[in-house]
């Protein structure tokens, strides 16, 4: 009983560095091998760029116009992040209401399910016609596509508090607001983080698909323009840029999780 417990924070020195190296190095090698094989096959079999461009050609397409690519990525990123934030705010409000009143939960959950079943990708053209050619319809598409996982997870998180913890709080007359702030929201944080991981990819896909429908900017626009001129290297490049943004998003979430969820005995690994 006198033994000091192992503090994970105290071991974050060399051991932490080694863990990070262990997490980064194997996948980096795997990706390098994958890209190398791809490059070799395209060259050896003389695959036409129209069928499949070589990684070097895709990299060349990016390299020719860094500024343009970054500008396009910035637009798409804004749409995806804006949509995610909008969905998060609505999800939080709905989840708090659903937790406070079971009737609200019974009303909201079917709606969330239906929203989830709507092929948002198919809805995008209608939204663009309805809302115009600016950022708004694209943000809305990203929001609609991330809304369901965020709402369902936030409700589950807010309601995952231990009944005993609730009774301890109630026994000293804690109000629902205090219980929400001190108990439910911190408890829901890991659930929201897990949903956010799923939403990174979804929001980016939503933004890009919305750009296909009518936009003069963003990675989706670059993609459709390249498609019209059969520039497959630029099409592939825009998809890779999107994937790269997803990786950046996941790394950012991982960073936030390590800062905010240090108290968790086991953490999801990147």
């Amino acid at each position: 009983m006198n033994r000091r417990p192992d503090r994970p924070g105290a071991a974050a020195g060399p051991a932490g560095g080694r863990r990070l190296g262990g997490a980064v190095l194997p996948p980096a090698i795997a990706f390098a091998v994958l890209i190398g094989v791809w490059e070799l096959l395209v060259r050896a079999l003389q695959v036409k760029p129209l069928v499949l461009p070589a990684p070097s050609a895709i990299a060349g397409a990016v390299n020719r116009d860094w500024g343009g690519w970054l500008a396009a990525a910035w637009v798409t990123g804004q749409e995806a992040f804006g949509g995610f934030l909008l969905a998060l705010v609505v999800a939080l409000l709905l989840a708090v209401a659903a937790t406070a009143a079971p009737a609200v939960e019974r009303a909201v959950l079917p709606v969330v399910t239906v929203v989830q079943l709507i092929p948002v990708v198919a809805l995008a053209p209608a939204l663009v016609i309805g809302l115009g050619f600016d950022l708004r319809p694209r943000i809305l598409v990203a929001a609609l596509i991330t809304f369901a996982p965020l709402t369902v997870n936030t409700i589950a998180g807010l309601q995952s508090v231990e009944p005993e913890a609730l009774e301890v709080m109630r026994s000293v007359n804690a109000g629902e607001w205090e219980i929400l702030v001190k108990l439910r929201l911190p408890q829901a944080l890991p659930y929201i983080a897990a949903a956010t991981r799923v939403c990174v990819g979804l929001a980016l896909i939503g933004a890009m698909v919305a750009e296909w429908q009518g936009s003069s900017e963003g990675l989706g626009y670059v993609f459709t323009r390249a498609q019209r001129s059969l520039a497959t290297d630029r099409m592939w490049a825009s998809v890779f840029m999107l994937a790269l943004m997803g990786v950046v998003g996941l790394v950012a979430i991982g960073f936030l999780e390590r800062r905010l969820l240090r108290w968790r005995p086991t953490r999801l690994r990147n």
Binding site: E162, E164, E167, L183, W263
Partner: peptide
């Protein structure tokens, strides 16, 4: 009232001291 339930029901994100002080913060 001071309630001690069957499970410790500690808040996992709070330190020992912050858990002990929890009920003093309420209201």
């Amino acid at each position: 009232f001071g309630l001690v339930p069957q499970a410790p029901a500690l808040l996992p994100w709070r330190t020992v001291r912050a858990n002990i002080g929890l009920l003093r913060e309420v209201n």
